[in-house]
Amino acid sequence: MDTFINQPVSIDEITPWRPPSIRKVGMLTLITTESALFAIFVVAYIFYIGKSLNGPYPHELLEIPWSASFALFGSSATITFAEFALKKGNRPLFHLWWFITIAMGIYFLGFTAYEWHEFIFEKHLTISTNVFGTTFYSLVGLHASHVVVGLLLLGTILISSLRNKLDHEHHEHVEIISWYWHFVDAVWAVVLTVVYFISAHY
């Protein structure tokens, strides 16, 4: 293979060869594929708006979840603060912001649990009640399951960092996990619009 080296210098020598990081490309690809998955559930939800044959109907149940949305969107900001802190080398501040992010995520999940409990046991809407129940629980549930996965990832980072296992080369891991968290937030923006703003009138 030495012969490769003997070739004349070409234009390529001027710029260094630096392909993008595998983790970043991997996370972007994962986000693309997850978006496609969510798109189908969102389309199913929109398709079935107003097509339930029996109640309860969305306008009887849905209330805009201000506090939970605030927590989730806010956590997108706090995770960015955490990243900044990590970049500056301020480990305690990083832990603090990271912990707040997790707490806000848990608050969001708690709200979903509360909402579902109320819908199922007091308003008698289950997944098999009508097409609203079917599409509502599947779409919101799919999102909630992604919040759970995100929380597991965040928790893993927190624990490893507290045990001092997180060193400099892992900053990229922290970054791509925050990307995932932003993605989960962005999906919530879509779910919030479609489910709580649009369909609540039907």
Partner: peptide, 11 residues
């Protein structure tokens, strides 16, 4: 028992 493709229940 979800109703995604249940034509009897509006699916």
């Amino acid at each position: 028992g979800a109703k995604f493709f249940d034509t009897q229940s509006g699916g």
